[in-house]
């Protein structure tokens, strides 16, 4: 799916597309399968997934904005170094902020906050989008991709917490006798759940494509 790299004359429709692309059509986890490390590691409960999703969303929007703002000044040779510097700055800020808000969340996310810096979605968007588009559109792209990532983490976290602990955000759903499937809280459960979601997406896309082919054939 080609991006509209380029001509800085954004219409509202184009802006909308920049936002919606990341949400669904180009969803960073389910379609591009990027940033799987935090996706697998931090989704063993809904609250962890939400915290990680919000942290990444914040970094993505801020770094997209700043990268886009300096895009015309940065020489080609040092662009990656500059982007990483910018991303690392916002990751450090997020790190401090989470620690200030809740030590419990900070402990649960552990080293994965610092690892946001190597989440390929963020550098990917800086390089592929923010460095070629105006600030407004880049922020929208960051929002779309960030929320797309958030949705993915939330879907994984929900499945894993509901099956693995029988709770949602800590509230018990099935009564005291429910047998939790502990596996889904453990690392292998992350892989299984991601695989199931990818399978659902693949099946959905497959079906859509087949229907398109059918309508085209009928039209012809």
């Amino acid at each position: 799916m080609p991006h509209d790299h380029g001509q800085p004359a954004p219409s509202p429709a184009e802006n909308m597309e920049a936002f919606l692309d990341g949400l669904w059509k180009q969803n960073p986890v389910f379609v591009q399968v990027l940033g799987t490390c935090p996706t697998l590691a931090i989704t063993n409960s809904v609250s962890n997934a939400v915290a990680m999703g919000l942290a990444t969303l914040f970094v993505l929007v801020c770094s997209n904005a700043l990268v886009s703002a300096v895009r015309k000044l940065v020489p080609k040779q040092v662009r990656i170094a500059t982007y990483i510097l910018i991303i690392a700055t916002f990751v450090t800020i997020v790190d401090y902020l989470i620690k200030a808000i809740s030590v419990a969340v900070y402990k649960a996310l552990g080293p994965f906050i610092a690892l946001i810096v190597v989440n390929c979605i963020i550098l990917g968007r800086a390089e592929a989008y923010a460095s070629k588009n105006p600030v407004g559109k880049s922020i929208l792209d960051g929002l779309g991709m960030g929320i797309g990532f958030f949705i993915a983490l939330f879907s994984l976290g929900s499945v894993r917490e509901i099956l693995g602990a029988g709770t949602f955000l800590g509230f018990p759903l099935f009564g005291p006798n429910y047998q939790p499937w502990v596996l889904f809280l453990l690392p292998p459960g992350g892989f299984f759940t991601l695989a199931i979601w990818l399978m659902v997406f693949a099946a959905w896309k497959d079906r859509k494509k087949r229907r398109e082919v059918k309508t085209m054939a009928e039209a012809a």
């Binding site: 300096v70 000044l73 940065v74 700055t89 800020i93 401090y96």
Partner: peptide, 21 residues
């Protein structure tokens, strides 16, 4: 010059957050 100014902005942002939190 560019790297220097970006580093300066980033440094200021980090220091600001650090003091604030």
């Amino acid at each position: 010059r560019l790297m220097g100014s970006v580093s300066l902005i980033c440094g200021l942002l980090i220091v600001g957050t650090h003091i604030g939190t």
